[in-house]
Nucleic acid binder design. Structure first.
Length: 254
DNA sequence: GTTGAGCGTT
């Protein structure tokens, strides 16, 4: 979807893609187009949206016809306040196919003569993590802390250098044991230890299974872990995989 | 109604 109503990418042969991050969730391409178009010839403005919800992911791609104009827009719009959010404009490092751009076109065309023009926001950048093509499915935001939406797909995406400050020793020595310990503790330490350590959160009941007549007690309280253990211990994974997502990768794309 | 590191589609 392009702002021009065209189908797919117009022409990336001679266009320079700019990645606009930190934009508001309600900011649309129409809002960015005039903003970027003022600094150069904008070929296309694309804002990835969620398939399910259809909401913006919080970033957009602006394609310029010339690199010099694109660079100017980067220096100009980078850090600009749009819709109440401080956007971050930078050259896209990856192409639509998740491939590294280095044809000398869209790739970083930062003139060394200009020195460090982006000293305004010297953020770390990585170029060897794009291989994870599954990133397109990852939660568009960290709301998973509150809402378990795509927790099943959550993996080591942001572990590059954000929250992964712990020493590798922890994972090598403790990591394995922890995994093993967690597994076995699931069958006997259910009502003894923390009943809800990392248990499965059937976000929504697959089937409209109404609560039993005896709904006097709150199922979230201790009562829940008292009668549930037997059913979960039988086949915790079987239920989840049989009722919800049998193969996360199977239905990756429609 | 929420969210906030990052890299893209008819």
């Amino acid at each position: 979807m392009s702002h021009f109503g065209r189908s797919g990418p117009p022409d990336i042969r001679d266009t320079y893609s700019l990645l606009v991050l930190n934009i508001s969730f309600r900011t649309t391409a129409d809002d960015l187009y005039p903003l970027f178009d003022r600094y150069g010839k904008v070929v296309d403005v694309f804002i990835p949206r969620d398939r399910r919800s259809g909401d913006s992911r919080g970033f957009a791609f602006v394609r310029y016809k010339y690199a010099d104009e694109a660079q100017k827009a980067v220096e100009r719009l980078d850090g600009r306040n749009v819709d109440g959010r401080n956007i971050m404009v930078q050259f896209a490092k990856y192409g639509p196919n998740a491939e590294p751009i280095r044809k000398g076109r869209i790739v970083e065309v930062l003139p060394k003569t200009s020195g460090r023009s982006r000293s305004r926001s010297p953020r770390p950048r990585y170029r060897d993590d794009y291989r994870d093509r599954d990133y397109r499915r990852r939660s568009r935001s960290r709301s998973k802390g509150r809402y378990d939406r795509n927790r099943y797909r959550e993996r080591d995406y942001r572990h590059r250098s954000r929250s992964r400050s712990q020493s590798p020793d922890y994972y090598r020595g403790r990591g394995r044991r922890s995994d093993d310990y967690r597994r076995r503790s699931r069958s006997l330490s259910y009502d003894s230890a923390s009943p809800d350590r990392r248990s499965y959160s059937p976000r929504r009941s697959p089937m409209p299974r109404r609560t039993p007549p005896s709904c006097d007690e709150s199922p979230d309280k201790g009562s829940h872990g008292k009668r549930s253990p037997p059913s979960r211990s039988v086949s915790p994974r079987g239920r989840l995989a049989d009722s919800r997502s049998p193969s996360p990768r199977s239905s990756d794309q429609d």
